[in-house]
Amino acid sequence: MVKPEPQIYRYVLKGLGAAPEDVVFIDDNRANIEAAEALGMRVVLHKEDTDLRQELALLGEPA
């Protein structure tokens, strides 16, 4: 299994015992971000100038 195949995300979610909406997925590849988001995860596209603290603060708590 490899990203962005959906089964890798489901496998990790199951292993964590977490619901997708309780997970923040951070990656620098848009295809991976889109796949995680399609499963309901909150996402951050990481770029060289990304301020992760700010991005995570903007996400806040899960809905």
Rank of each mutant, 00 (worst) to 15 (best):
D22E: 15
Q7W: 01
P62A: 04
V24N: 01
G15P: 09
A18P: 08
K47T: 14
P20K: 01
D27Q: 07
A57C: 10
E21W: 07
L58T: 05
H46D: 09
L59A: 05
A19C: 02
E61F: 05
R30V: 12
L39E: 10
E21D: 15
L59M: 09
V44W: 01
L45A: 06
R10T: 11
Y11S: 14
R30A: 14
D28I: 06
D28L: 05
D22M: 06
V2E: 14
L56K: 07
R30M: 14
N29W: 06
V44G: 05
F25P: 13
E37G: 07
V12R: 01
F25W: 09
K3V: 04
K47G: 11
E55A: 15
A36G: 12
A36R: 00
G17L: 09
V12T: 13
A38C: 05
G15F: 04
A35W: 00
M41D: 04
N29H: 11
E34R: 09
G40Q: 01
A35Q: 04
V43S: 06
D22Q: 13
V23Q: 08
L59W: 07
R30Q: 14
N32R: 00
K3Y: 02
R10N: 11
K14T: 09
A31M: 11
L39Y: 04
L52H: 05
V24L: 08
A38H: 04
E48C: 05
R10E: 15
Y11D: 14
G15I: 07
V44P: 09
L39K: 03
L56G: 12
A18F: 02
L56C: 10
M41G: 03
R10G: 08
T50C: 09
G15N: 10
G15M: 09
M41F: 03
A57N: 13
R42A: 09
Y11K: 13
E5H: 09
V44D: 03
E37Q: 14
D27S: 13
I8T: 12
P4S: 07
E5R: 10
P4G: 07
N32L: 06
A18C: 08
D51C: 05
K47H: 11
Q54L: 15
R10W: 06
V2C: 15
L16C: 13
M41N: 01
M1V: 12
V24F: 00
I8V: 15
I33E: 00
D51F: 02
P4H: 02
V24K: 02
A38T: 03
T50K: 06
D49R: 10
D28S: 09
V44I: 14
L39W: 05
P62Y: 01
D51E: 12
F25V: 07
L56I: 14
E21S: 14
L59I: 15
E37F: 06
V2K: 10
A31D: 15
A35V: 06
E21F: 03
L13P: 13
F25A: 05
I8G: 06
A38D: 12
D28R: 01
P20D: 05
R42N: 10
D27M: 06
T50M: 06
L58W: 02
H46C: 12
D22Y: 00
A57M: 11
V24E: 00
Y9E: 04
A38M: 03
L56E: 10
V43E: 01
A35D: 04
L58P: 08
E34K: 08
F25M: 08
D27T: 08
D49T: 14
A38Y: 05
L52P: 12
